[in-house]
C-alpha cells in the first residue's frame, strides 16, 4: 500500500506516470509497504501466465530475494527510479523516505535494490546518476544505502506511519520500531541475478 498522501501524475510519454506527494512526507516515513492486496507471483505462477503478462511484470513488478515478483495492487507500481531517490528499500516489503518529500515532489526508489533481472539504462538526471542500474549495484552502493536507511529509520518512531495498519506483516515493522529487531542490511535482500532470481522477462 502506497502512502495515502500521494497521487498518480503523468510525467511524459517516455517516462509514463509517476507517484507524487500531495502533502509533505517526512523523512523516516514508510512510503510503501506490502499489503494484503498486492500480488506476490511465485516463479511457478509466472510460468502459468499467458506470455502477454511478461511485459507487465517486467515494467511494474519487482523481484524479492526469493524470486517472487511483487506487483503492487495500487499506484505503488508507478514509483519511478532515481539514482538520488526519495525512498529506499528498508527490506523487500517496505520503503522508507530517506529525506523529507515536499508536496508536489515525485516519490522515487532506487531500482538497484529491487533485484532487476536486466540492466536498466538510466537518464534520471540526478547528480551522480549511475547511467546503468543493475542488480549487483549493492556491491558498490550497499554501504551508502545502509547509512541512509539507518539515518532515516532513526526518525521512524517520531513521524506518523499511516501505512502501518495496512501492512501484511505489521509485526515486522513494529519489532524494528520498538527495538526488538534490527534494521536489516541491504545485502540481506539484494541478490545478484546469478543467484537465481529467475529468468529475465521477454
Amino acid at each position: 500500500m502506497i502512502h495515502p498522501d500521494t497521487e498518480l501524475r503523468f510525467v511524459s510519454p517516455e517516462i509514463g506516470h509517476g507517484v507524487f506527494a500531495t502533502r509533505r512526507i517526512p523523512k523516516g516515513t514508510i512510503t510503501w509497504g506490502l499489503c494484503h492486496l498486492d500480488h506476490v507471483l511465485s516463479p511457478a505462477r509466472r510460468l502459468e501466465l499467458p506470455p502477454c503478462y511478461a511485459g507487465v511484470i517486467s515494467a511494474f513488478a519487482y523481484l524479492t530475494a526469493q524470486g517472487d515478483a511483487v506487483l503492487c495492487w495500487d499506484i505503488g507500481r508507478y514509483v519511478n527510479h532515481s539514482c538520488s531517490p526519495s525512498s529506499l528499500s528498508l527490506n523487500d516489503e517496505l520503503d522508507i523516505a530517506v529525506r523529507d518529500i515536499l508536496p508536489g515532489e515525485q516519490l522515487t526508489d532506487d531500482y538497484g535494490m529491487l533485484n532487476l533481472p536486466h540492466v536498466l539504462q538510466c537518464r534520471c538526471g540526478a547528480p551522480g546518476c549511475r547511467r546503468e542500474v543493475r542488480a549487483d549495484d549493492h556491491l558498490r552502493m550497499g554501504a551508502e544505502w545502509e547509512v541512509q536507511v539507518r539515518e532515516a529509520f532513526a526518525l521512524a518512531s517520531r513521524v506518523p506511519q499511516p501505512v502501518l495498519p495496512y501492512l501484511k506483516n505489521a509485526s515486522q515493522l513494529l519489532d524494528m520500531l520498538e527495538g526488538r529487531a534490527d534494521v536489516p542490511s541491504p545485502l540481506a535482500y539484494c541478490v545478484p541475478p546469478a543467484a537465481g532470481v529467475g529468468p529475465a522477462p521477454a
Binding site: 494484503h36 492486496l37 500480488h39 501466465l49 503478462y53 495492487w73 495498519p165 495496512y166
Partner: peptide, 19 residues
Amino acid sequence: DPLDQILTPDQVRGMPEIY
C-alpha cells in the same frame, strides 16, 4: 484475466478493518 484477484469472504474477513 488471471491477474484479477478473487478475494473470498474468508480472505476479506482476515483483513484489518481499515481495508
